[in-house]
Design a protein around this nucleic acid. Sequence first.
DNA 1: AATGAATGAGTATTCATTCAT
DNA 2: AATGAATGAATACTCATTCAT
Lengths: 223, 223, 223, 223
Amino acid sequence: LDTAVNTPSADTERPERRSRRKQARPGELLAAALDLFVEKGFAATRAEEVAQRAGVSKGTLFLYFPTKEDLFKAVVRENIAGKVNEGFDELYKFTGPTAELLPFMMHLWWERFGSTKASGITKLMMSEATNFPELTEFYYNEVIEPNHRLIQGMIQRGIDSGEFREVDMHYAIYAISAPLIHLVTWKHSMGCCVGYKQQIDPERYITVQAEMVVQGLLRRTTV
Amino acid sequence: LDTAVNTPSADTERPERRSRRKQARPGELLAAALDLFVEKGFAATRAEEVAQRAGVSKGTLFLYFPTKEDLFKAVVRENIAGKVNEGFDELYKFTGPTAELLPFMMHLWWERFGSTKASGITKLMMSEATNFPELTEFYYNEVIEPNHRLIQGMIQRGIDSGEFREVDMHYAIYAISAPLIHLVTWKHSMGCCVGYKQQIDPERYITVQAEMVVQGLLRRTTV
Amino acid sequence: LDTAVNTPSADTERPERRSRRKQARPGELLAAALDLFVEKGFAATRAEEVAQRAGVSKGTLFLYFPTKEDLFKAVVRENIAGKVNEGFDELYKFTGPTAELLPFMMHLWWERFGSTKASGITKLMMSEATNFPELTEFYYNEVIEPNHRLIQGMIQRGIDSGEFREVDMHYAIYAISAPLIHLVTWKHSMGCCVGYKQQIDPERYITVQAEMVVQGLLRRTTV
Amino acid sequence: LDTAVNTPSADTERPERRSRRKQARPGELLAAALDLFVEKGFAATRAEEVAQRAGVSKGTLFLYFPTKEDLFKAVVRENIAGKVNEGFDELYKFTGPTAELLPFMMHLWWERFGSTKASGITKLMMSEATNFPELTEFYYNEVIEPNHRLIQGMIQRGIDSGEFREVDMHYAIYAISAPLIHLVTWKHSMGCCVGYKQQIDPERYITVQAEMVVQGLLRRTTV
DNA sequence: AATGAATGAGTATTCATTCAT
DNA sequence: AATGAATGAATACTCATTCAT
């Protein structure tokens, strides 16, 4: 459902106890690894702990993922599948004004991604990017770039409809993405350590940022 | 200020070489540590390497910083002290409209902090926050909170002068901070791994974000 | 009894070699540790050396004993358990006069403990007592106190039978224990370094001490 | 008085402030070292701490004692000077019955040595004997052997006077020495770690042991 | 496929000892 | 003679990875 862990190989055999379980192994390991990597970071996560949480032995873990780095890569690759497409669907489906589209999409993003465990990999990638350059490139191509196109689509929609003014599109995108990324990054770093008073309320945060960016983009009616 | 980071500076002078060095040691070590921590992260940085880069032996490092964690803390403390005050100074000194103050301050921040090596600790803290809760709290109190107050001061100035509309101040702050933090975080993560085409031009980035946020805050003249 | 120290025993049998070894591991490690601790003391014994002598790698040692201190504790526990009970058995079994019981028991003690490698831990505990207060307390409760009760039982037997005079029991005990402890302590310290001429012949030593203490305890027939 | 720390070189210069102090250095270091070695053992005592306690720098310590081992040897050698001679003096001076001499001498020993800090080296030597073989030999010749001769003199006196029976002299000696050595050894090991209830009262302990040994040596009047 | 016992390279930290001043 | 900054060998302990069963 949320972060549906799919076994790489298609599930062809009937739902028979033994083999289902067998097939489920890598998925369980990836789920456990996601949890722990998000929770403690790459370096601080011990392989044994991952195996334990997945209910298998250490040996089994290395049976599926020959290296801790491979495990990490798999975790990231696994958890970034096609979220963007959902976004494009919503964009195309939306009929109201773009000034309403933006808040709607941003809140939706929170609901479907930001608030889920999967958002932890956003922070993970920030932290480990330089240690996994080719993974980072993959992440850029598969996640960042598509999302930028989605955001660009949203903004362009406003410009095309005459709602928004012309902007330096390449950089205007960040007015939407930066606050969102900052939100989940905060949530998985500072947010864990500061007191109740310093917490950010995501809904309110997004509401304000969305309002700001809409105001920032809107064509000045008179002037 | 106190433990000002001194560059090793070629040893051309003969007299009191030993004692000169002694004074410089902590600074040299902190500089080396900053480099390496930023470059490879906390866990991946070996104590010996820090010592080597500072031109001393492993033992000497532990003479000044009894623990790798202590070294990390010192690096963080060293590279953030007083930065905010500079910001307040500029704020109080500024005489033009707030719509110009914001871009000015954001660019200044880049010039004096974002573009320097020290900005690497912003990303470092994000990455290591959960591993050093006590340090994170320190960082929040000494860096984040003061910066928030500075930003709040800037926005309030605009509201007081009638330029800006009333906003949910606590969250409006992030409209300014999030893009900036995102910029340095990017610079020290993704930025290192993606191609030339995907690079962000900081000046242009800040210009656009500043314009967006100013537009977002400005009181609508007619309506 | 529980973790009986098994000698490595030449591996002639082929089947289940791995699992056989697994069972023997802790015992082999404890035996090696006993050897080395007795030989060189706690501080001077390197963990790796213990592993080597047991024929395993460093890692394996820490697999079974998470800490060098834990290893030390295990060695102490291993080599003292139940020794006292043997003494009580002999005491209850003995039917002759107490004047003969004492020499018998003292010689038996030498035969079963003093002359064995295990007596080295008596000296070890003396040397390391202040460094391991918690272990020292354990040793007092599990070894010293029970032995004192055993000796007290022996003396009391003589008093009850009318052979021995009334004595300050609490301190009379040491008339028996002190010479014995001194013997093994000597054996593992001075004894290793002084020439042949200065050596103590344990049997003769015990014979004389036993005679002395018996004479010291006997009720004066006429007076 | 008790452990008078004498500078090796005879004090020829007048008691002038500066040089007195200079001359006192090694003595202060030895005193500090004695304290610490007794308190924590050889391995656990850090050179720096010795220097600190003596009020000098680490460098100075190594100026006088090129090696920690040398320091240890010096501490032992320093603190075992001619105590035995005092014992012989008392023996020759004593006029009463040997049955009274023994308790007298044993209590005196406690008063002048056992109860002082210097008794710590007795335990030290036990602990470190095997690590310092040639020191051990020295200790045997300078301390143990003379003390044995002293004790032998005491026993012989009783035999010669007809009070004591003939004994295996070489081993009878231990009937006196073992309890005393055991007392100081206990005091500096177990004694530090066990509760109030398990403490040994030295006076009472010696009284009982002395009585025992006297009884053990006395010629049976009738029989 | 699964286990978990075994490995050993790797790393922070300590501390006796040196030596420029 | 005295200092104390600097050294680096030494060592307990960790943890990814292997492999016999």
